[in-house]
Simulated scan of single mutants.
Amino acid sequence: MAGKRIRGVDDEHELEVPSTPVSATSAPSVRAELFTVPNLLSAIRILLVPVFLYLVLVLKADLLAIGVLMVSGVTDYLDGKIARATGTTTRLGAILDPVADRLYILAVVVGLGLREVIPWWLAVILPLRDVVLFSLVPFLRTRGYSALPVHFLGKAATAGLLYAFPLLLLGDGDGALANLARVFGWAFTIWGVGLYWWAGVLYAFQLRRLLATTPRVR
């Protein structure tokens, strides 16, 4: 099935949008696309988001909450690895993976912000980037697209933050281990926030290129 392609900022990722709608005869392939191991791992990550918030805010079981974040990080790595190795990269997976990442970032900054583990500005600045990018979606839709391809910088930023948050949570205490975790946690946080916003800038440049090179759709 033919479709349109757009190059990513790093010229290594492409996004294909089908030019024809999915017909009823393609239902078996649609079902096969839904029920893949990478999609299941992404779904598990999303389902664990409220579990993390419950552990942090209600039970204050920090070690279990850190365990949830570790599971999230491992499944984040595995779903992409398995999808590429088995050729089961799907359109649903391309949506679920970044959604899971953003839900975890939002849940963690809310949870740690309410616990006063992180300052208020950090709890605001990370979701603010996603709000800014979400405001660009209407412009994207004028060219027939609903999302831009995820590039390596965005994944690196997310990985840095997923390292930072467990360390910050572990650093919410006293003793040499907590102090060491706090130092490394803030180091990953600074790098993660910087890369997260820089990735947002690159997404904006991708959108600008798309608007300049792709005709408007009716």
Rank of each mutant, 00 (worst) to 15 (best):
V110P: 11
V110A: 14
V110C: 13
L112M: 15
L112N: 11
L112Q: 13
G113F: 14
L114H: 14
E116Y: 08
E116S: 14
V117G: 01
V117R: 02
V117E: 06
I118S: 04
I118A: 06
P119K: 03
W120N: 08
W120S: 10
W120A: 12
L122Y: 08
L122Q: 07
L122R: 04
A123E: 11
A123G: 11
A123W: 13
V124F: 13
I125R: 01
P127K: 10
P127L: 06
R129L: 01
V131K: 06
V131A: 13
L133I: 09
L133H: 06
L133C: 10
S135Q: 11
S135H: 13
S135E: 07
S135R: 14
L136P: 11
L136E: 09
V137N: 05
P138D: 14
P138Y: 13
L140F: 12
L140P: 12
L140N: 13
R141S: 12
R141Q: 15
T142M: 09
R143M: 12
R143K: 15
R143V: 15
G144I: 08
G144Q: 12
G144A: 13
G144M: 15
Y145T: 09
S146Y: 12
S146L: 10
A147Y: 10
P149W: 06
H151A: 11
H151C: 06
L153E: 06
L153Y: 08
L153Q: 06
G154H: 01
G154Y: 01
K155Q: 05
A156I: 14
A157S: 11
A157T: 04
A157K: 05
A157I: 10
A159F: 15
G160D: 10
G160R: 03
L161C: 08
L161E: 07
L161W: 06
Y163M: 15
Y163V: 13
A164N: 03
F165W: 10
P166Y: 03
P166V: 05
L167N: 07
L167D: 04
L168P: 04
L170G: 02
L170M: 05
L170K: 01
L170C: 00
G171V: 05
G171C: 10
D174N: 01
D174W: 00
D174I: 00
D174M: 01
D174F: 00
D174P: 00
G175H: 00
G175F: 00
G175E: 00
L177F: 02
L177E: 00
A178C: 03
A178I: 00
N179I: 05
L180S: 11
L180D: 07
L180A: 14
A181R: 02
R182N: 15
V183Q: 15
V183L: 15
F184Q: 10
F184T: 11
G185K: 07
W186M: 08
W186F: 11
A187I: 14
A187F: 10
F188N: 06
F188W: 14
F188R: 05
I190V: 14
I190H: 03
W191T: 08
W191L: 14
W191N: 09
G192Q: 07
V193Q: 04
V193H: 02
V193Y: 07
V193L: 10
G194M: 03
L195E: 04
L195P: 02
W197Y: 05
W197E: 00
W198H: 04
